[in-house]
């Protein structure tokens, strides 16, 4: 009698939540179409709606903390860039003054322009971020293979992404071994940064050089021997609901672009 763990391989994998149960490629097109609409329309209202939509998805999939963290990074970078490209050209616009800073009066129109940009970026990036936060790379690759992408290509994508984990793991091992050689690794954030920097580049290089060994190992597992791989883990095929939702999002995006 096969264990529960093995039994799951006999069934198509379902997503843990309603969002993750939608076909990964359909989900991607949904997010992409809405984020293109957000970018094209460029208004703070559309941006805010996109951010809220992202929050709903992140909330359902228990990824709110990560989502907020990524949004914060976007906020900082877009905030700085927006302050440079959106405010100065509108400083001489007439109308009500929103606020004065360092003796410079910032008109309402400049502020609104800035907010449009900031929230547009948050919405645009946020939708793509929430997609990648809630979708495993291997599921994306599985769907691409189903659409005809070569198994070699998808494997290379997966290996590239797994390099991140591999580098993290190697970094952790090297830090532990450096600690075991008497180099202080424990301490506040400053100490940690100071100790990571000298080893970061060599660790990345050594992770890359270990690709040769991994290539040989995959070679020993008949990598590329067949044009059509089979899969232990199968995802359910995109159903009418998945495709329907996808087209609704595309239609809504097109409509919004046309209207606004």
């Amino acid at each position: 009698m096969d264990s529960k763990f093995i039994q799951q391989f006999y069934q198509d994998k379902r997503g843990e939540t309603w969002w993750q149960d939608i076909d990964p490629l359909c989900r991607f097109i949904m997010c992409l179409s809405l984020s293109v609409a957000t970018f094209t329309i460029g208004s703070w209202q559309m941006g805010l709606c996109a951010v809220i939509f992202g929050f709903i998805i992140a909330g359902c999939t228990k990824k709110v903390k990560f989502y907020m963290g990524m949004l914060l990074l976007v906020f900082i970078s877009a905030g700085i860039l927006g302050a440079i490209v959106r405010i100065p050209p509108h400083l001489n616009d007439g109308g009500a003054i929103a606020f004065t800073i360092f003796g410079v009066s910032v008109p309402m129109s400049a502020l609104m322009n800035y907010l449009d940009y900031l929230l547009m970026m948050e919405g645009f990036a946020g939708l793509l971020i929430v997609y990648f936060l809630t979708t495993e790379m291997r599921d994306i690759c599985y769907c691409l293979e189903r659409k005809g992408m070569s198994p070699k290509g998808t494997f290379l994508v997966l290996v590239a992404f797994s390099m991140i984990t591999s580098i993290q793991q190697k970094l952790s091992n090297v830090r532990e071994s450096q600690s075991a050689r008497g180099i202080e690794m424990e301490g506040n954030f400053g100490v940690k940064v100071k100790t990571i920097i000298p080893i970061l580049f060599p660790v990345i290089i050594s992770s890359v050089t270990s690709v040769e060994e991994r290539t040989l190992a995959m070679n020993a597992r008949a990598f590329g021997a067949s044009r059509h791989n089979s899969h232990l883990r199968n995802l359910k095929k995109a159903g009418a609901l998945d495709i329907g939702l996808m087209w609704i999002c595309v239609a809504v995006s097109v409509l919004l672009i046309v209207l606004f």
């Binding site: 532990e176 600690s179 075991a180 050689r181 008497g182 180099i183 202080e184 690794m185 424990e186």
Partner: peptide, 11 residues
């Protein structure tokens, strides 16, 4: 810390 002990005990 690990580093302090490791200056006496090598692994």
């Amino acid at each position: 810390t690990t580093a302090e002990v490791s200056r006496k005990v090598g692994y």
